Each structure stands twice: as C-alpha cells, then as structure tokens.
Computed example of a mutant assay.
Amino acid sequence: MKKIRRAINKKVGKPPGEAVYTGNYSEEQTKLIYRFYNPDTFDEVKPIELSEIKPKFNSDVNWIELSGFNDIEFIKKFGEQFAIHQMLIEDIVNTNHLPKFEENEEYIAVVLKAFSLKENGESYNRNNICIILKDKFVLDIHEFSNNINDSKIERIKLGKGKARKKGADYLFYVLLDSYIDTYYLVFDDLSDRLYELEDLLLGKSKENLIEQIHKIKKEITELRKFLFPLREAIAQIIKDEPELIEEDNLIYFRDLLDHLNQLTEYFQMYNDMVKSLVDLNTSNINNNINQVMKFLTIIATIFIPLTFIAGIYGMNFEYMPELQFKYGYYVVVISMVLLGISMFLYMKMKRWF
C-alpha cells in the first residue's frame, strides 16, 4: 500500500502526457538491443545507440528491445523517433497502469505485466511491459532486463518454428505469448502454497494460519488487476482485426485469449479456495478453543464432588462422628480418589473426550 501511495505522489501535479517513472528499478540502466531477421539470416546488435537504429531493407522483421526506465529523456526521444504518442509513453513508465490495448494509424500497442522469479526463489518481480507493432517493426519495452524471451530468441536465431518465415505481427504474438505464460508460473506457485496450507489445516493444525492465507489472498487480488484487463485487451485485438495483423495470424491471438480464459478460471478457483481456507482456519481455531474448554470442563466436573466432600469435612462443627474414627482420613482420601477415577472412566466410556 505504501508503494502505491508513493507512486501516486510522484504523479500528482504533473501535466497530462508527462512521463514519470513510478517503479522501484530506478538504478536499471536504459539500454537498447536491435535484432533483425528474414527467412535466411538473423543478426543482433547490443548494446546500440538510438541514432544507429535504421531499418534494414533486406530484413522482414526489426525487433528493438528497450529495457530500463532510468533515463526518461532517452525514452522520450525513443518515442519521438518511432512516432509513439506521449500519452502512451506516460503509460509505459507508469508501473501502476493497468494493462490495455491501443491502436492508431501508425501502430498497435499492448501494455501488460509479466512476472519473473527472484534470485531467492521465494517471490516474483513484476515487470511493466509494452509491446508495439509497426510496419516491419516490433518494439519490446520493459522496465528491467529479464530472461523470459531467451528461449524464443534462441529458436528464432536457429531458424526453428515459424517466426523466421512470418512477419512482425507473428513476433508480436510470440512476445505476448511469452509474457502471458509467466502468469502460469505465478499460479503454479500459488497452487503449491494453497494446497500446502490446506493440508496443514486438514491436519487440524493448532497454529493460526490467517496471516499466510491473507498474504496469498492479497497476491491473488493483485493478479486480478492485471489479468482481467489483459484479457479484454486481447479480445479487443481479435474484435478490431487491425490491418497490421494478417488475417491468417488472428488464430494465434484467439489462442492467447484461450490461455487468458484458462488463467481466469484459475483465478476464480484459487480465490474460492482462499475463502474456504479462511473458513477452515476459523473452524480449526474454534475447535481448538472448544478442546481447551472441554478439557477444563472435565477437570472442573471431576473436582466438583471432591470439593464438596472436602468442604463438608472442612466445616468447624464440634461433633462430627467421623473425626473420631481412627482411619477416617484414609477412608475419605481413598473414596475421593476412587470417585475421581470412576468419573474419569465414565466420561471416557461415553467418549466425551
């Protein structure tokens, strides 16, 4: 919540279209990588200066990757060179912006989030990404460098698959598919953690696990903010059938929509599971309290008649026949022990505990 508040504060008072980076990777240097290919060749230049980027006339696809939002002025110049509207540049560097689809005469663009595993292997980095499709150009802009597309780059370099034989619109799909697949990584992790909590709760854990459950619920709620708008964005691409995407390639975007529908089902399933875990945790807590109360009640019940007997012989009457009996003390103590044991055995026979 504090991170969101700080990000909003950075935007307050700024004019519309003013690019302000609101993320947490301000030390990530801004750099460019230029890849271009056709069915016969593939080449890669990294790093490269903005002024050196020129379309290769013998290449069918020009793939420009920009990573790092450290240098906002550089990003603005990048946007000017490729005729990207300043409002879209603003949305790209605003890491709290929801996913969306944008189309104009020059390009189509999708803003989305992708996830990558942190070095500790216990949590995820959230990467703000924008993919822009122009004629023979794909601009792949992301908040920080990552290895999400390494396998895709290697396949294209080796000429495997369809990418080298198709145009920029197919690469646009390939990148979207790669970033959408990272949501499966997050849901797989959530699934493992949810089922682990479920096993603990079904095992009648005496520990209150509400903090762990609430943490997962928070992560699932955050995923919803990015998943549902992204599904709408892909659906809008299919509906609009942009000129920059060949009709034959629209089937791949329908496949993306299928993936997002499946991810939405995962969200609904895990969201319901979190609710059931909250109920199960509450039930376990109540059951533990009931067990304690039952134990205390049994102890109290056993000692009620013993206290009654002790109370009788604790009265200060002058004439009590039993007080003159030589073995009176032993008889009373043994009677109290036998009474306590018999009550305990009776309760055990009735399965009251």
Rank of each mutant, 00 (worst) to 15 (best):
R254N: 11
L190P: 04
P229K: 03
E27N: 12
I234F: 00
I4Y: 12
K204I: 09
G311E: 08
E241H: 10
N149R: 07
F325K: 11
K348D: 06
I108C: 01
R231Y: 05
R5E: 15
P55R: 13
N149W: 05
L280M: 11
K54N: 14
N290K: 07
I33A: 10
I64N: 01
M320Q: 06
V333H: 01
V45F: 04
S145E: 14
L256C: 07
F78H: 02
A168C: 02
I289H: 04
V61S: 00
E318A: 10
L227C: 01
Y252R: 11
L190C: 06
I299D: 06
Y313D: 06
T95K: 03
K160W: 08
P99T: 08
D188H: 10
I234T: 00
N287L: 15
M336L: 14
K162P: 05
Q81F: 12
A300G: 13
I153V: 15
E102C: 05
N70S: 14
L201N: 03
D40P: 00
S205R: 00
F42N: 04
I289E: 05
F42M: 07
N288R: 07
M293C: 08
S51F: 09
V292Y: 00
Q268H: 14
K206A: 14
Y313K: 05
I299W: 09
L176T: 05
F101E: 00
A233C: 02
V61K: 08
I216M: 02
S145Q: 12
A300P: 09
G340I: 07
V278W: 01
